[in-house]
Structure formats: C-alpha cells, structure tokens
C-alpha cells in the first residue's frame, strides 16, 4: 500500500517535471547563435591588438573585500570569485603584458531582469593606458560589435552627470540634502541612508535611466569614497577617483579604473573596507596576501575594465531580460 502510494507520487512528480517548461533554455537558439558570434568577435578584437587571453581560478582561498558584493563559499572554504581582478593583477605584476579574460563570475543574491547570480565578465588590462585611453578602447570594441562605427560617444564627469539632472553636487553636498533629494525623487525613506546609498540610488534610478539611450555614455571622476581599486586625482579642489562606467540603452555595462598600484594606499583601503564590513555585520574578509605581494613587487602602470557580456548581448539583441541571452538562468539550473 505504502509502496504503491510512493510510486504514484513519483509518477506525478516526474510527469510534472516533464510537462513543465523549465527544462527548456531561457534564450532562443537564434539568440544563443548571436551570442556566440559576439563572443567570437570579442576574441578576434583582442587577438588583433595582441592582448593575451588568460584563465585564472574561479575558487580562491582569499575573499573579496568589497562591502557591496556577497560571495559564495564552497563547503571546504574556498571563495568563488566575483571578478578575476586580483589574479589578473598578479599576472600583470609577473610581466604578462596586456591581458584579457572572459570568465564566469558569481555574485550571491543578485537576481532580477538585469542580474543573474552567475554571469560572464570580460575583463582586460592595458599597460601604459590611463582611464581615458581605455574608455576610447571600450568604445571601439562596442562600436565594432554593434556594427555602428558612428555610434556617438559622450564623456561626462560624475559631477556633470548629476548636474545634468539637477541633482546636488555629489562631492560637496551635505548628506541630508542628498537624503532629501532621494525622498523627493524616489519615494523612499532615506533618513538613515549613508552618503553612498544616496549617490548609488540617484545614479542608478535617476541618472542611468535618463541618459540618452542611443549613445555610449562614459561617466568618470567618481566620488573618492567609491574609488574601489582606482587611483585618485585632484579636480577643482576635490579628490576624485579615476574610475569610469559605461552606460548604453539605460544599462550599466562596464566599470574601469586607472589602476591603483600604491601598496600603502591599497592596504589602507582594505582596512577601511574591513572596518565597514564589521560595522555592517558582514563577514570578515580573508585578505589576499598573494595580491598584496604582487603589488609590493610592482604593478605596471595600467588601466583595466570589466564589462558584462550578457548585458552587452542584451543591448545588441534588444532583449529586456537577461534570460533572453542566457542558455539557462539560475532558476532553471
């Protein structure tokens, strides 16, 4: 009796699976063919420029430090990378010259129309470039992939981007003014938001959707506290980060830096992030000493950028949902 009931249950269970659509790919086969073409063209682009393709570990004994990224950890304690940045910088320090990588990266809890917890990142580093030279190369790549050599390119400083939307100065405005602006523009309760919460909210929900869609917009000179791994510079008496982001069709596509190579400043930022994580009650980071040793040895002067391949294909194919360009999203994994 019991056995029969079990059998009936399994029969229903398997019939449900077979009848459901979840075994099928999210993207159409045609979209996957187009995606493969884009990936091939990216490889050709770098081959023509003599940029070496490399592969680095997905699993690392050290964690990232970024307070806004949550990492997966394997049962034996390895961290799954959120970007291949540290390992690629070790190669640069070891004399690799210009390098690129297309890697699956993993970010816990990021799910939505434009997010899948694992996605494909194109990351590359150019020796002797600063952020402006690298922005030009990013534009060259995207124009080529879009077959639109005349696609307009606009560069705006973070401050200019904010002032274009009549938002307060991101560098000098008091945090209360930024909170008020968030409350007015976004219907939220920003009373206990930090300065960066406010800036991120205004950037991603006012500026980003408002930029002209039919042009490549590079935003550069980020607020200093959002430097991540970029160098600083002084502009009009303000310290800003030599970091840039690319926006196209209302979508954030790439994030680049004129790379920080100063070991003392790097250690200071790691400590700052560790304190911030402790204050936020987030897991303590495991510092990557191999990365620090590589910086100590010497990172050549370079600029680097990470570009979301899935999102780029979304724009190229006119897909509004990231599933439209992926074989299987996480809920069908």
């Amino acid at each position: 009796m019991h056995k029969a009931a079990d059998a009936a249950f399994f029969f229903d269970y398997f019939r449900e699976i077979t009848l459901s659509e979840s075994w099928k790919p999210n993207a159409s086969i045609d979209s996957l063919i187009e995606r493969a073409k884009v990936v091939r063209s990216i490889r050709q682009f770098f081959e023509h420029k003599n940029v070496l393709e490399v592969e680095t570990p997905i699993l690392s004994r050290a964690s990232g430090t970024d307070v806004q990224l949550s990492q997966w950890q394997t049962s034996n304690g390895y961290f799954m990378h959120t970007s291949p940045e540290f390992a690629m910088k070790r190669l640069l320090a070891a004399g690799s010259g210009d390098i690129f990588q297309m890697a699956r990266v993993f970010r816990l809890d990021e799910c939505g129309r434009r997010h899948n917890p694992e996605f494909t990142m194109l990351e590359w580093y150019r020796l002797g470039f600063d952020e402006f030279q690298l922005m030009d190369e990013v534009a060259e790549l995207v124009r080529g992939l879009a077959s639109q050599p005349e696609l307009p390119v606009v560069q705006l400083s973070y401050k200019q981007a904010f002032s274009r939307f009549a938002l307060p100065c991101p560098h000098t405005a008091a945090v209360d003014e930024l909170r008020r602006t968030c409350n007015q523009q976004l219907n939220c309760d920003a009373a206990d938001w930090t300065r960066d919460d406010c800036l991120d909210a205004l950037m991603s929900m006012v500026v980003e959707p408002g930029l002209p869609p039919e042009q490549l917009t590079f935003v550069y000179d980020y607020p200093r506290q959002q430097a991540a791994l970029a160098r600083f510079r002084e502009v009009d008496g303000c310290t800003v980060a030599r970091r840039f982001e690319l926006y196209w069709q209302g979508m954030e596509l790439a994030n680049g830096y004129y790379e920080l190579s100063d070991i003392t400043e790097q250690k200071r930022r790691f400590e700052e992030e560790a304190h911030l994580r402790a204050a936020m009650g987030v897991q303590k980071p495991v510092i990557d000493h191999n990365f620090l040793a590589a910086l100590e040895h010497g990172l050549p002067d370079c600029a680097g950028v990470a570009l979301g391949v899935d999102r780029l294909v979304m724009v190229l194919l006119g897909q509004a949902d990231i599933g439209g360009v992926m074989a299987f999203t996480q809920d069908r994994s």
Binding site: Q68, H115, D200, N255
Partner: peptide
C-alpha cells in the same frame, strides 16, 4: 524590480 549598481548598494523598486 531589483536595481544594483555593479559596485554599489542594491535597491528594490
């Protein structure tokens, strides 16, 4: 809708 700048705070609209 989940909104998150690559390097920034995540929001829900």
């Amino acid at each position: 809708e989940f909104v998150k700048p690559g390097k920034g705070q995540a929001f829900n609209r």
